[in-house]
């Protein structure tokens, strides 16, 4: 739950077709989806990402379709955390279910720039920008969702219930 990496900034209203275009939805393989992450924004976008880097979104990140392939593609690209002004509702749920860390920070997103070296303490909701020296706090995760996370995610939660 402790991450360090370079921030990669994208704009407002990044939709799921930008994150992973529909033509790649003929597979559910994380590696393959990861290779095409953000190719609906720019072909070859993912080549700038090193494993452990952090995605910085604007408003309404992940709007559009319900495809769970979107958080899987981001994870498959080696990105463990997305920090954004705000998230679209379905994407937010999907991210948690897939184990992608999502941090909502509102206007504070302005303190995190493209290429900045970032450190994320997910459980504490703290983001440290080592390039600028700024610190950003994320909004707390709803209690119920934190519970599901603590149980090891939705899959484990259901597995316990049906056992």
């Amino acid at each position: 739950m402790h991450f360090k990496g370079k921030g990669h900034k994208v704009g407002d209203h990044i939709d799921t077709d930008a994150i992973i275009p529909a033509r790649y939805l003929v597979t559910t393989d994380p590696e393959e989806l990861g290779r095409n992450c953000m190719s609906g924004l720019e072909e070859g976008w993912v080549s700038r990402v090193s494993r452990g880097d952090i995605l910085l979104g604007g408003k309404n990140f992940g709007c559009g379709s319900s495809r769970e392939h979107a958080p899987i593609a981001i994870l498959g690209a080696g990105i463990p955390v997305v920090i954004a002004h705000s998230f679209a509702r379905i994407f937010y749920r999907n991210g948690f279910n897939m184990g992608l860390i999502l941090m909502e920070v509102g206007d504070e997103i302005k303190k995190l720039g493209d290429g900045d070296e970032l450190e994320v303490k997910a459980l504490e909701g703290k983001i440290i920008n080592h390039t600028t020296g700024d610190t950003v706090d994320s909004l707390p995760v709803p209690e119920f969702m934190a519970d599901i996370l603590a149980k090891g995610g939705l899959i484990n939660y259901v597995r316990e219930r049906v056992a």
Partner: peptide
């Protein structure tokens, strides 16, 4: 709308949150 894993949970339990 929801993602596939939420839907799998609903298929198994007949409920969601």
């Amino acid at each position: 709308g929801m993602g596939s894993t939420d839907i799998a949970a609903a298929m198994a339990l007949g409920e969601t949150w």
